[in-house]
Design a protein around this nucleic acid. Sequence first.
DNA 1: CCAATAAAAATTGTCAACAATTTTAAATTG
DNA 2: CAATTTAAAATTGTTGACAATTTTTATTGG
Lengths: 202, 202
Amino acid sequence: MEKNSIKADYTREEICDILRSDLIAGKYSHDQPLREISLARRFGVSRGPIRDAFLKLTQEGSLVYETNRGVRVHSAIADEERKVMMKMRLDLEKYCISKYIDEADQKDHDELEILLERFKCSCLRDSLPGVAESDLSLHRHWVARASKNLEPIWLGLAVRILMKYSRLESFEESIEEHDNIVEAIQVKNKDGALKALALNVI
Amino acid sequence: MEKNSIKADYTREEICDILRSDLIAGKYSHDQPLREISLARRFGVSRGPIRDAFLKLTQEGSLVYETNRGVRVHSAIADEERKVMMKMRLDLEKYCISKYIDEADQKDHDELEILLERFKCSCLRDSLPGVAESDLSLHRHWVARASKNLEPIWLGLAVRILMKYSRLESFEESIEEHDNIVEAIQVKNKDGALKALALNVI
DNA sequence: CCAATAAAAATTGTCAACAATTTTAAATTG
DNA sequence: CAATTTAAAATTGTTGACAATTTTTATTGG
């Protein structure tokens, strides 16, 4: 019944993704330490894969690591820092969407539609963890398709930005914003897509 | 005699830093795989710490990881991607220098001077690995002092940018550029520092 | 009762062994 | 000889054990 008590065997990547969406959803409070052993039990693996996931999330910036003391949730970012990050993320994602419009094929468009649908479902039915995860997946789709090089950089920005203001969003507004972005992409309207993106990201 | 045959016990962080500067210096060719066992022997540790370092460098973007196949050196970034990254890095570092000028105390300025001196020595005496490493350390100083949150993001950008064009730089020019940046910082001349930075980073 | 010290518990750091997978080399077949 | 199959080697994935460190608890002395 309880999600966390499922004892399937998870891979490193799955563990990392699950922890990331937990963090975005605010499931752990700021500065709270994460323990290797308890998470190892939760995911039914040994400490190795947990440590791997910690390292990745540390590099992304959502966790902080101190020698011999393990990791804890990063403290909240300041408004000024958030503004810098937003600007960087917007620049990056603009470039990616522009490239995506040029290069995406039918298969990409199909996947895009599925991800958009999944995001809408999450907004209507799920609670925050699901919404955060599907929002990230949707944006990640065009970023990853445009540039595998920029993807990890984008992810680090997006996660930290989401961690701060994940609570207050109006879901209906968010659905409309994403509808506008995807619609513009589908008709290859670059200007429209970039403007819609700017409204959503800032 | 040979650097790589030294068998001291290195920590995870040291291994990560050494590998990073090796990568920046172009010591490994593109798409070349890095093997856990041979590096474990080189650093006199077991595979665990090597794996940790691989994960960090993968997240930064200089290595690529594939399941059951390990890591290999990332292929070179395209010019367009590099331009996007440069813009992001410049924005980020401008914010950091501006904040650094406001907040740095005497101890910071002392450290800054030492790092600048070390960079100059590297330019005059060392080969590329040393220059890349001390260049990164110098910039990292004001970034880390201004924001621990932005530091990992900056590092990811700086490393990828350095990896592409690390061979052709003129060292004398680079010394002058960094002299100008640090001098402006020391007299708290924000405009001058930001302009000097823009000349160095772009 | 409080502070300082000492013992115990909890946690992280590292390692070596084994399992699973991939790559390379050898053998087989047409 | 080339293509396929099979066996061997190399490499990564995971685990449990033990060492080193940190944190918590218990003890002691004033």
